[in-house]
């Protein structure tokens, strides 16, 4: 008798694991996913399925080729695939999510070391890559026709209309619910995204800091600066990708700060850039790029926001020592 297990402390662990967190994110995205399919019909469903399957496939393929442990069961590729699809227009060709998935998983995620090591949000990186490479396919918005079988007619997104200096026809209720407006599959129904975001907050998967500060910053800037003659801060919150970005993209663990103060700075930066791009930039929407740019600032932000430790010595004393 001497064969007892010896291991480091602690000997009890919480039940939560990576898979359960990723599962919660998928659950939180379900309302918006369902609404996307309801509004945009079979093409949306097809794109979502293709995108998720491609992400899982590329993760598996890369890990297989590189002789690394296969970790697709942690569901992180499913989250990336779902988010990527939600950032596509429903009219996108079927190969688009496949190309995007390859970029997201292989270039943005695996080449930097896989899960947790990516310095930018993989789904957003994929979207940015697609937008730069296939601008026509990525910006052909159609009206939500659901399963009616009607031909999908081209429309402009509310933000694109705003950019031209005209108030869109869509009402505030329309942009809240996603009815009668064009946009990415997953971004039009703001209410569904908010429900999902509340679920993530309730499950402690994300903290309130990034989404609340991000949204609040956009609201304040849009109210203070606003567009010429079209100051509609509330409308700006729900038209476009802000809810999807604030709750699901900017909160990506790997590419956002871990420190409380850092998260607030990061979120203010996202809100500032989003507002500036919307008001002064060449694009109608700025959520994706603002998050990507802020992703790059994370190491710097973290460096200056390390929490004060319990029992920290006063600064002067430390300086004296040095």
């Amino acid at each position: 008798m001497g064969n007892f297990v010896v291991s480091g402390t602690p000997h009890v662990r919480s039940k939560e694991n990576i898979q359960s967190i990723m599962r919660d994110v998928v659950i939180a995205l379900l309302p918006a996913t369902v609404m996307g399919i309801v509004y945009f019909g079979i093409p949306a469903l097809t794109l979502i399925v293709v995108s998720i399957v491609s992400c899982i496939f590329f993760e598996w393929l890369y890990q297989k080729l590189m002789k690394k442990p296969i970790t697709v069961s942690d569901l992180s590729a499913v989250v990336t695939g779902l988010l990527l699809a939600m950032n596509l227009p429903a009219s996108a060709p079927i190969w688009l999510p496949i190309v995007g998935a390859a970029f997201s998983i292989i270039i943005a995620k695996q080449l930097f070391g896989g899960l947790g090591q990516n310095f930018i949000n993989p789904a957003l990186a994929g979207r940015a890559f697609l937008l730069a490479s296939y601008p026509t396919e990525m910006t052909s918005w159609t009206a939500p026709v659901g399963f009616s079988g009607a031909d999908a007619v081209s429309v402009a997104t509310p933000l694109a209309t705003l950019k031209t200096g005209v108030m869109p026809d869509a009402t505030l209720t329309d942009v809240l619910l996603g009815t009668n407006i064009g946009g990415c599959i997953g971004e039009t129904c703001a209410v569904a995204l908010i429900i999902g975001g509340i679920y993530l907050l309730y499950k402690h998967v994300i903290s309130w800091r990034i989404p609340v500060v991000y949204i609040a910053t956009v609201f304040i800037l849009m109210a203070l600066i606003g567009r010429d003659g079209l100051r509609a801060p509330v409308y700006e919150l729900f038209a476009g990708g802000l809810m999807l970005g604030a709750f699901f993209m900017a909160t990506d663990y790997a590419s956002s700060p871990v420190t409380a103060k850092g998260q607030i700075i990061f979120a203010i930066g996202c809100g500032l850039l989003t507002s500036l791009i919307r008001i002064f930039g060449g694009y109608p929407e700025g959520v994706s790029y603002s998050i990507l740019i802020m992703n790059l600032c994370v190491p710097l932000i973290e460096r200056f926001t390390e929490p004060k430790i319990f029992g920290a010595l006063p600064k002067t004393k430390e300086a004296k020592k040095a």
């Binding site: 694991n17 990576i18 967190i21 970790t71 942690d74 992180s76 070391g113 896989g114 899960l115 947790g116 090591q117 663990y253 790997a254 871990v258 420190t259």
Partner: peptide, 8 residues
């Protein structure tokens, strides 16, 4: 043990 996901 898995990769750190930086959840904080």
């Amino acid at each position: 043990e898995r990769n750190c996901i930086r959840c904080g």
